[in-house]
């Protein structure tokens, strides 16, 4: 079994080397690099631009990583892939991760965060605008079942009885919102407003973050075991990924078109959508302390917000020391 695996790794690395034949030394490096698997939290879209860029430009190889990247989907519970050892590192929603640590004793550590501010928010049409939590009273709001308790927390923080809002499941498609069957939906504010504009309507939105639900998103999570055994690789991953994201945000319109025939091929989404997404997410990802950083105040705010929905985390679930080594 081990033999087979290492052989496959070898072939993979060799293929990567062959692909990089324009850079003759790249292949040497790829062969010597240590394998490192990353599990993303969703299908390929601009949410993961920084990693695509890092992979394309060889930033991970520069850190001695032979990185493999797996996209996610609704059935892929990111944390599960690091428990089973299929991935070394994954991107998660902090509520899920912290709940798993505190309630099931899962051996996870959060070593960084892609989004300083969680991009999920309440999206509605300008013609029937919902600009603040109070506007939701008496309205129908579609929420992915996973996020229901986050929404309920936000309502509670703003003094609204959850019984006053009609919450229904959100099934990935904004059509019911555009057609007025629902009044608002919970989604990535970096993404859906574009779709709505494509359908000839105009969207308005607000972040849950701005109304008290102050959590990160796409938190970078590893197991304690990996943290112990692969610290060097993890710091390398953070450094390479930060380079990728910084480069991406120099001009967020530049990279998505270049990936039309690679990372974004056949995803069913448009490049214009990815450009919109990439621009919209810039202020949520960037931080004065550097991308992925987790300031003490922000960790505190994240824990407090989660405490509101009965998820009791603590500071030691976060490890900021790797960020210091970048």
């Amino acid at each position: 079994m081990d033999m087979k695996l290492s052989r496959r790794r070898f072939l993979g690395a060799a293929a990567a080397g062959a692909a990089a034949s324009a850079m003759p030394f790249g292949s040497f490096r790829a062969m010597a690099a240590s394998p490192f698997a990353m599990q993303a939290s969703w299908i390929n879209d601009a949410e993961f631009a920084g990693y695509f860029l890092g992979l394309d430009k060889g930033y991970y190889a520069d850190e001695g990583l032979d990185m493999s990247y797996a996209s996610g989907g609704p059935d892929v519970i990111p944390e599960s892939t690091i428990i089973t050892g299929r991935a070394d590192l994954t991107l998660t929603t902090p509520d899920t991760t912290i709940k798993a640590i505190s309630e099931q004793g899962a051996p996870f550590k959060i070593i960084g965060t892609q989004y300083q501010k969680n991009p999920i928010g309440i999206v509605s049409l300008k013609s029937n605008p919902i600009n603040k939590p109070e506007d939701l009273v008496g309205k129908t709001l579609a929420v992915p079942p996973v996020n229901v308790i986050s929404v309920e927390a936000m309502l509670k923080l703003n003094g609204i009885d959850k019984a006053d809002v009609n919450i229904v499941p959100y099934a990935y498609d904004p059509t019911p919102l555009i057609k007025g069957e629902i009044d608002a939906s919970l989604d990535f504010t970096t993404n859906v407003p574009f779709t709505i504009s494509q359908q000839g309507a105009e969207a308005t939105s607000f972040l849950l973050y701005d109304f008290g639900f102050t959590i990160f998103n796409d938190t970078v999570v590893v197991t304690e075991e990996t943290l112990k055994t692969k610290r060097k690789e993890l710091v390398g991953w953070l450094r390479a990924s930060r380079r990728g994201w910084e480069e991406n945000f120099v001009d967020p319109t530049v990279w998505p078109p270049k990936w039309a025939d690679s990372w974004f091929k056949g995803t069913g989404r448009t490049i214009e959508n990815e450009i919109y997404f990439n621009k919209a997410q810039q202020p949520l990802v960037e931080s004065p302390n550097g991308i992925f950083s987790m300031a003490e105040d922000d960790i505190e705010a994240c824990l407090t917000a989660l405490g509101q929905i009965g998820i009791n985390g603590s500071r030691d679930m976060f490890d900021t020391t790797l960020l210091e080594e970048i």
Partner: peptide, 9 residues
């Protein structure tokens, strides 16, 4: 493909 397309309305 369906999953990626769903968000497009």
């Amino acid at each position: 493909y369906l999953l990626g397309s769903l968000g497009r309305a």
